[in-house]
Amino acid sequence: MSVLQILDVGLALLVLAVAVWTIAAREIFGAVVAYVAYGLLLAIVWIRLFAPDVALTEAAIGSGVTGILLVTSGARLKSAGKASAAAKPGLSLHLSAAALSLLAATALAGVILALPEPSPTLAPEARQELAATGLGNPVTAVLIAWRSFDTMLEKIVLLLAVVGVWSVASDRFWGGAPAPLGRANPQGALLLLEQTLVPLGILVGVHIFWVGANAPGGAFQAGAILAAMWMIVMIARASEPPRVNSLWLRLALISGPAVFIVAGLAGIGMAGNFFAYPDGFAKPIILFIEAFMLLTIAATLPVLVAGPPRRSFGP
């Protein structure tokens, strides 16, 4: 066994151990902290699978933003969380759930070991598409050019999630703002973090967006980083979650899918097909679409974390 193999097995065991902890931890806070660590470890697994784009997304959204969402909501439910300890299910349910889970995991593992060789693949088609777009990162090319329709629909799913989250607001708070993300008097360490990390983070986010055309990165990962920076600012109370009826927020939320649809429709006139990009102009158009997707993702994630409006402002 080489050193790399030993590291692989160690990483796999570590991921599983931390995953067990997210399920077994007594307090929700401990479980969420374990989940964040789990997401970061999983990002290393993704690197080992030659998927740096997925690793960035997993670390930023799967672990980071989901972690913030669950920590803030866990704090809002804190008093109620303890009471539910009484409602633990009995031993028989535990055993049957364990048996069912074991069955599902074993069946899936069997499928993985029996995957066909050689595997079916779309890589040759992706290679052709990549040449047509002028991009260097095949995953970005798949997301924004080849399967752009899927990505556009996914942006609309994000928009629907915002509509869903906002629609659980009480009527009297409609048009108001979500509750603040942080405590009233943030500690000095948090303020220092906000003042030093946020300017750097914005630079890193823009960089990851820009290099995403040719290297690992892109609008999803960069948008998540910018969203995280905005959330740090809100947790440090340097700015408050915006009112849900503010025009600039709504424009930012819809700009990504709107630009995407307009570019797709323009493809009918310019290149003869919905979502076809004219030869030689593919890369500028793709970067233009990605810039607005970046804006939409950076606005949508914090809005989803902040939740529905919970307070109405004065006149």
Partner: peptide
């Protein structure tokens, strides 16, 4: 790697987060 499943995972992670946010709300 085959970039198509990787691209699907990236969109999937974002959609999973959106679903979690809706469930939390």
């Amino acid at each position: 790697f085959d970039p198509v499943p990787q691209a699907m995972v990236i969109t999937g992670i974002v959609v999973a987060f959106a679903a979690s946010a809706l469930a939390v709300a």
